[in-house]
Write a protein that binds this DNA or RNA. Structure first.
Lengths: 139, 139
DNA sequence: ATATAAATGAAAACCTTTCTCATTTACACC
DNA sequence: GGTGTAAATGAGAAAGGTTTTCATTTATAT
C-alpha cells in the first residue's frame, strides 16, 4: 500500500509519485539518476515529464523517502532510504556503486566535528576506484 | 620565481598561467572557484577569459599544482596543492572550509577498498555542518 | 458534485563547465 | 635578435544536468 507511504509524509497521492516510487522499489539497480527513472517510466509506457521526475525525487528526498548522492562528476543518483547510514564505493570504469558501513569512520567523523566546533549536519564519503570485476576484465 | 614552477611541470610560461598562480598564492581565501579566480583577476585589471581560467586550473590540477574539491551542490573549488592529503569540513551557512587529517580514517578507507576488491584511485570525505562562528552568531 | 490549491508537462531558463575557432603568443632554431 | 610552428588564448557558442515558468490538469476537502 504505497499510497499510504506518500500520505504519511504529507504528499498528495498522484500517479507520477506512485510510479516513481514503484520504479525505485522494483528496479534491480539500487542507484538511479533522475534520467534513469524517467527512461524506465517511458519504457513502462508511462507518460511523465522529466521535470516531474526531478521534482518528485527532490520531494521524496525532503520527505526522507530517498537520499541523493552527489557524484564527483556533477551527477546525482538517488536511492531508497532504508534508515541505515552508509557510505559508497564507486567504480570509475563501470560506474557500479557499492555500499559499506564503518562505525570507526563514523566515530572519527563525529570526533573531528566536535574538535573543530562544527555542529555536523551531514557527511559524505566516497571511495573511487576500479571494482573487482573491472580489474579482472582488463587490468 | 614562479616561472620555474610552470616549467617544472611542463607548462609554457604564459601571462594567464602566472597570474592565476599569483592569485592562488596571494589570496587569503585558500579555496577558490574558477569564478572567484576570474573575478579576482578582473579586479586586478588583468584581461583574461573565464574559459582560460578553467583551462589553466584544470592543467594545474593535472600537473599536481592544485587540487579540485567537488562540493555537494555541483560546484568546484581549487586549492594549492601542499603535498598533504586532507579532508574537509564545510560550513553550510558561511561556506567557510576547514581542513583536517585523520590517519585512522585513511587507514579504514584503504582496508575497506581492499575488502571490497577495489583498487582505490581516489576518495573524498566531506563533513557538512555549522561552524563555530556561525553557531555563536545565531544559533 | 464542486471549488481550490497543488501537481503536472513542455519548453524555456539556468549555471557551471567545456568546446570551437580565429587570433595571439611562447619558445626552439637559425 | 628575427622567425616559424605548435601551443595558448579569448569570445562566444554549446553542452549537460537541473530548475523554473506558466498554462492545464488533478487530488482532495467541503
Amino acid at each position: 500500500m504505497e499510497s499510504q507511504d506518500l500520505r504519511n509524509v504529507g504528499l498528495k497521492v498522484t500517479l507520477p509519485r506512485l510510479k516513481v516510487l514503484e520504479i525505485l522499489e522494483t528496479t534491480k539497480q539500487r542507484h538511479m539518476s533522475a534520467e534513469d527513472v524517467y527512461k524506465a517510466l517511458l519504457e513502462m509506457g508511462e507518460e511523465i515529464g522529466l521535470a516531474t521526475v526531478y521534482r518528485v525525487l527532490t520531494q521524496f528526498q525532503g520527505a526522507g523517502l530517498v537520499s541523493r548522492l552527489s557524484i564527483d562528476d556533477g551527477h546525482a543518483v538517488f536511492e531508497l532510504e532504508d534508515g541505515t547510514h552508509h557510505d559508497h564505493l564507486l567504480c570509475v570504469r563501470c560506474h557500479q556503486i557499492e555500499e559499506f558501513i564503518d562505525e570507526v569512520i563514523e566515530q572519527r567523523q563525529r570526533a573531528i566535528a566536535l574538535e573543530k566546533g562544527f555542529e555536523m549536519t551531514d557527511h559524505s564519503l566516497y571511495i573511487y576506484g576500479i571494482c573487482q570485476k573491472c580489474r579482472q576484465d582488463k587490468d
